[in-house]
Amino acid sequence: MIYDLIIIGTGVAGLSAGLYAGRYKMKTLLIGSPFGGETAKAGSIWNYPGARGVDGYDLMRIMEAQAKNVGVEIIEGKVTKTLAEGHCFKITVDGKEYVSKTLILTNGAERRRLGLPNETALANKGVHYCVTCDGPVYVGKVVAMVGGGDAAVKGVNLVSQYAKKVYLLVRGKELKAEPINQSEMEKLGDKVEILFETAVTEIIGTDKLEKVVLSRTHDGSNELVLDGLFVEIGVIPDREFSDSLKLGTDERGYIIVDKSMKTNVDGVFAAGDATDFFGSFKQIVTAAAMGAVAATSAYQDAKTHGELCQLHWLPAK
């Protein structure tokens, strides 16, 4: 069987694309793991229109149900191979091959790490990348958040509900968070201490995090004793599929798309955090919009060029 569309990624962009594709009556397969992308880990969401204070995980389950409701098949698994051949796209998941006339990549991006020695060894032993998940474990403890963007400030607001002291370590001279989230943080008073122009240069601990070394002194020392360190310093795009499909990317690895979310390869579209279409403004609302546009473009493409895949495709013997 040949699908009209395969979507890789089960975050907002992928599920939004699935909803639109299903409504276009496209035979659509959505592949991804883990479920829900970054939104599922976002906690309460207050900036997505029409869903006041919705929980990110619940929002993603609603989007999943909407996509399934219009006939989209969803499978959980890791894509191990992608191949473009005569306007056919062959996607291998756990040893099984699926074929499609069009492809939308919404595989997102990975959390950026500090890149310091000891960081991997102490992951989940004091060093964390999901504050909504692991922040609540640090009841009554001293923690630090690394980052100066919205995710870092939202993370501080969340972990402050549990920790007794939170340091926000900002490399630059100012914060780049939504003003409303900054206002929330300011209400926390002395519990939160912001150290600007401060980077973590070393992570120290054996079985668990003990302290970090800072790029500048604080209270007479460049060492900061911590129970937990949370890292929210943005994302780096996953290049796996863009490399294998020879997609055009920018210097940071984001897939280049035009206003219809089309890549440089016919029949391949991209949406969400895998692209840099809206620059650093990576929001649920922008990902959803990109997914909808990508599905609409894939629909037009499949109508125009879909028969090329059927002409070229030979089922595996």
């Binding site: 883990p34 479920f35 829900g36 599922a40 880990k41 906690g43 929980d55 990110g56 995980y57 999901c130 909504t132 998940c133 692991d134 922040g135 609540p136 474990v137 009841v139 969340l158 549990y162």
Partner: peptide, 30 residues
């Protein structure tokens, strides 16, 4: 913990497979 995605995926999985489980919310249960 309350907002942990993988915790919720695990609980959804248990429900889907009719596995009875006991949950301990470590954010409140010292």
């Amino acid at each position: 913990t309350p907002w942990c995605t993988f915790c919720r995926m695990a609980k959804d999985f248990f429900k889907e497979h009719n596995v009875t489980y006991t949950e301990y919310d470590v954010s409140v249960d010292e």
